[in-house]
């Protein structure tokens, strides 16, 4: 996973479906065309749901990967986290 694009990061770790997608949608609503947004999530539904959201809303799903250990914070939440990346499209 490369550095996040201008759209930034949505940290949805510890949140259950559909909140991660909802946070992403709010971030995407304020982002420019072509902006890339990363979502950090621990909910196993986040990746398939973000993929489906991108398809339904005409955005581009860029991929998903395990979140690097260095990005874990110290709140004791050690569930496997993923980083899911999308590119926002304003044309659709």
């Amino acid at each position: 996973m490369n550095a996040p694009g201008p759209g930034g990061v949505v940290d949805a770790r510890g949140l259950r479906c559909p909140i991660p997608v909802l946070r992403l949608a709010k971030a995407a609503a304020g982002a420019a065309d072509g902006a890339e947004i990363e979502v950090w999530a621990t909910d196993p539904a986040a990746e398939p749901d973000i993929r489906a959201w991108a398809r339904m809303r005409g955005h581009t799903f860029l991929g998903a990967a395990p979140l690097e250990a260095t990005k874990h914070d110290d709140d004791g939440d050690h569930r496997a986290a993923v980083v899911v990346k999308v590119r926002v499209s304003r044309s659709t």
Binding site: R16, C17, P18, P44, A45, P48, A52, W53, R55
Partner: peptide, 24 residues
């Protein structure tokens, strides 16, 4: 088939495998 229903941790493997929305 949503994970947020019935306390299941994992969403429906069927919906996920077909790329369908698993929530709601």
């Amino acid at each position: 088939g949503s994970a947020c229903t019935s306390g299941a941790e994992e969403p429906s493997h069927v919906l996920a495998a077909m790329g369908a929305l698993t929530h709601g």
